[in-house]
């Protein structure tokens, strides 16, 4: 078999899957977004063309803009704190001769093993106003005297959801930074130590610049995924209290799958979300993901 036909043969299954599960649904979502599609239309199988109506309704829906605002805050808070924490913890587990660092390194991947929906439910228990684990710890150690309603107050609910999300997704960032740390040549540090550079200067002038690439990777990947956060919202707050934790993916989900089941509007809002994320993806591909040859 000639090489070119072999390549096609080997990629046929992937191409079929990409076409049926990715390309076609994306195109079809575009189709749905410019048609009027509710449950009744779904039953009959006839969708009336409605032009930009769905986009217009989404873009004039105050709840959509609340969801976008919450998504932006959520993304900024989680990604920002993850990058800072990932660098700090990666440096921490990279320490030699500190036995607790070895314990941390051993445990670091555990949150990755917890299903997101279970993680959400566990934190619902942690945050519970009456019976919650967190209030118990804080009360019994005397740090607080009154129970705190962590997720019930609009001002703090979004941050209360951000913490479980950071907990679950932080291992990924730590592992990438830790791997990148191994790639920094030792001689750089030895030379700097001979020159009498302080630990802080070594970090600022050697470690951080050498981590620039991996931090860009983490920034783009985590931003894209935080934009589509869903499970923790579903488990902990269901968008509440009020609309304090409505985020973009939750908006599309509720508009589509909760009565009155507006599939057209749901698709339009999901398209807007996807557009924002894809712009980031292309940036990632062009600037960050290293593919030297080919």
């Amino acid at each position: 078999m000639p090489a070119s036909r072999f390549a096609l043969f080997m990629n046929l299954p992937t191409l079929v899957f990409l076409a049926l599960v990715l390309a076609y649904p994306v195109a079809y979502a575009g189709y749905l977004s410019v048609h009027r599609v509710g449950l009744a239309q779904l039953r009959r199988g006839v969708f009336a063309f409605s032009g930009w109506e769905n986009y217009g309704r989404v873009l004039t829906d105050p709840l959509f803009w609340t969801a976008i605002k919450n998504t932006l805050i959520f993304t900024a808070v989680t990604v920002g704190s993850e990058i800072v924490l990932a660098v700090m913890i990666a440096l921490l587990i990279n320490q030699t001769g500190i036995w607790t660092s070895r314990v941390t390194r051993f445990l670091i991947l555990l949150p990755y093993a917890v299903p997101p929906i279970a993680n959400g439910l566990i934190w619902t228990f942690i945050y519970s106003f009456q019976f919650g684990f967190l209030n118990r710890i804080l009360l019994s150690t005397g740090l607080i005297h009154e129970r705190i309603n962590w997720t019930g107050v609009p001002d703090t609910a979004l941050y209360a959801v951000a913490i479980p999300y950071v907990w679950r997704t932080l291992p990924f960032a730590i592992i990438l930074v830790h791997a990148a740390l191994q790639g920094i040549p030792r001689e750089l540090y030895e030379q700097a130590a001979i020159d009498g550079a302080s630990a802080w200067r070594r970090f600022w002038h050697i470690t951080l610049p050498m981590l620039r690439q991996i931090l860009a990777v983490i920034l783009v990947l985590r931003t894209a995924f935080a934009f589509a956060v869903f499970e923790e919202i579903l488990a902990i707050t269901q968008g509440g209290p009020g609309d304090a934790t409505w985020v973009a993916a939750w908006y599309s989900y509720k508009i589509t799958f909760a009565p009155p089941n507006n599939f057209g509007m749901g698709s339009a809002s999901a398209y807007i979300l996807a557009f924002m994320i894809i712009v980031m993806a292309i940036f990632y591909m062009r600037v960050v993901y290293r593919r030297v040859t080919l």
């Binding site: 990409l18 599960v21 649904p25 994306v26 599309s252 989900y253 698709s267 980031m280 591909m285």
Partner: peptide, 23 residues
């Protein structure tokens, strides 16, 4: 194809699930 794979990784599941449900 490789570029399509990289971009595909970013497509949020909710975008695919609405049309997939209908299909």
């Amino acid at each position: 194809l490789l570029q399509a794979n990289i971009v595909a990784r970013f497509v949020p599941a909710i975008v695919l699930m609405i049309p997939l449900y209908v299909v």
